[in-house]
Design a binder for these strands. Structure first.
Lengths: 319, 319
DNA sequence: TTAATTTCTGGAACGCGTTTCAGGTCAAGT
DNA sequence: ACTTGACCTGAAACGCGTTCCAGAAATTAA
């Protein structure tokens, strides 16, 4: 049962049926009634894929995310969804695991018109590739693209990082362990972290106290163990997530070791429960903005500020 | 640039080009080479929407979720994704807010072939509606459908609920507050909670100690306040999420009130941090199973056991 | 050397809705 | 009475890839 069947049954043409369905002008009352009757009688609904093909638009936005565990991504996703839903767009989850082939595959699906636009919450392939693929559709990334001409919604992190490290310095810490999601060489965010640290402390962060590939509570726990096993005793751990900080803390507690000071990120519930200083990167807002950019024709960059949050300082080391 | 253009340029027909693209048999080496050359030269990629239309399949699975904040949904989503990705399916997020019109709209989009199947992590419309819409595509729900003929992947909760309440009884608690996501009348899960409670305690849970519509940490906090303001002093709070329990706990701490015993659910990080007894509903596995059902032709029900988890009991009331 | 396969290939139909365009009607304006 | 413009309508083209079927050519089997 398709639009042509309805046309035949109602005695009108497919064009008229299409007009009725889409509430277009230039349809007589007679035609409208006749068509609606048949549609109702046969319980007809139009095929969305055919419509998408015809219109050249799917109302689907692909959202590429390296993994799903990290709240960074769920935060952005929520922001995107909250903006996409009222606008009549759907979001398609595209897990990438930072795999270049997989990401390329998604870009090609953009070319193939499977999505109207694609948002990279993060990406393993080069920014240059992303920029080049813009010929085939709207692409948005979620970090500062520097001089590259590409739409981006991201958090301006430097001030909050500086604030965090300044506060750290005021606490008279000397050995700061930094836990990162990705290595300095791979991630602009990681580079920024290093820069902020260096600016405040006057020297680069120690490699002995650095751990990368850290994403979850469990990773945080393992990092602390690794530090301990390498006889490193940082007096502060700066991590890229409250959950991660919580994991590290747990390792020390479990082993009756003194817990270093902790700074988290993402303003997660764990941080709230443990009263950790944290950095809120406003991911929900980033998601909203990314969506707006995705469906707009302009190529532009928008950013929001992140905030270093010092909670009322109770003791953080108790269980 | 479409397949017909490629056909013309290569001197072969669209049918042959299609065969080359899809690596079908019955193509001569000459034809293959010629077509591939033109495809490469013009950097042609086929249109996915046209292909979907032609094949009558989108490889998209719609996943309806009432809201995005609750880890119940993110857990299932992760399970679905982990299964869908290797199978070449994508998942489309469909927020519903338990709104019947919205959910109906998604069901209609299934009819309209926008999705190959649809998974309801939860639903506001009647199970009967869901059952009826199966004519139009594969539908999976995530709770025990009773006698209704519909595919379902869900957690068998009764044993863990019983175990939890039995443990509670052993702790000699008398006034158990129950915090639920949805009212008994609306939710089978809520009914089960009540049944388990009644079975163990020999009487129905107190309405004065019941709160519904509770989903987040903040809701948990508000519930505790509400209980307090109504002069209710439960000696245990049974909540539908560790985060929620954590929220309730925080209210008591903030007001220097004794913290009742707590039982959480979902085995969340907050529960881990606070050493809460919890119930793990195995949502990741539910997601996996739901996906398998979604792409299979059979209509069947599968369930997994949930587990009551009693952690090593440290004191839960400190900060 | 036939008969029977298997391999190639392309025209045309199919999946299905949208849109353009041309042709026609009818009421309002001059 | 004549022009103008708004209103209706449908055939056909368009978006684009897949597949069935028929016919031709090349092998293989007998």
């Amino acid at each position: 049962m398709n639009i042509h069947d309805i046309a035949k049954l109602s005695g009108y043409s497919a064009a008229t049926v299409s007009r009725v369905i889409n509430c277009r002008k230039y349809v007589s009352d007679n035609a409208k009634l006749a068509v609606q009757k048949v549609i109702k009688e046969y319980d007809y609904v139009p095929n969305d894929v055919a419509r998408d093909l015809s219109k050249g638009k799917t109302h689907n936005i692909g959202v590429v995310m390296p993994h799903t565990k990290h709240p960074y991504y769920t935060g952005i996703i929520n922001g995107i969804m909250d903006a996409a839903f009222p606008a009549g767009y759907r979001i398609v989850l595209l897990p990438s695991m930072y795999n270049a082939d997989v990401e390329m595959n998604y870009l090609n699906r953009l070319r193939r018109k499977a999505y109207d636009a694609i948002i990279f919450t993060s990406h393993g392939i080069s920014l240059e590739d992303l920029v080049n693929y813009q010929t085939y559709g709207s692409i948005v990334c979620c970090h500062d693209p520097g001089n590259y001409k590409i739409s981006a919604a991201y958090t301006e992190r430097i001030d909050s990082y500086l604030a965090a490290f300044k506060w750290a310095k005021e606490q008279n810490v000397h050995d700061v362990s930094i836990l990162l999601s990705r290595d300095f060489t791979l991630s602009a965010t990681s580079q920024l972290t290093r820069k902020a640290f260096s600016d405040v402390f006057g020297h680069a962060p120690s490699n002995d106290l650095l751990r990368t590939g850290i994403v979850t509570y469990e990773d945080g726990y393992a990092s602390a163990r690794s530090l301990h096993e390498n006889n490193q005793t940082p007096d502060m751990i700066f991590s890229n997530g409250d959950d991660i900080a919580a994991g590290a803390r747990q390792f020390y507690l479990d082993n009756n070791l003194p817990v270093p000071m902790l700074i988290g990120q993402e303003n997660q519930l764990s941080g709230q429960l443990l009263n950790l200083p944290t950095i809120d990167h406003n991911f929900h807002e980033i998601g909203r903005l990314a969506f707006e950019l995705a469906i707009s024709d302009e190529t532009k960059q928008v950013s929001v500020e992140s905030k270093f949050i010092l909670r009322n300082q109770k003791d953080c080391s108790d269980s």
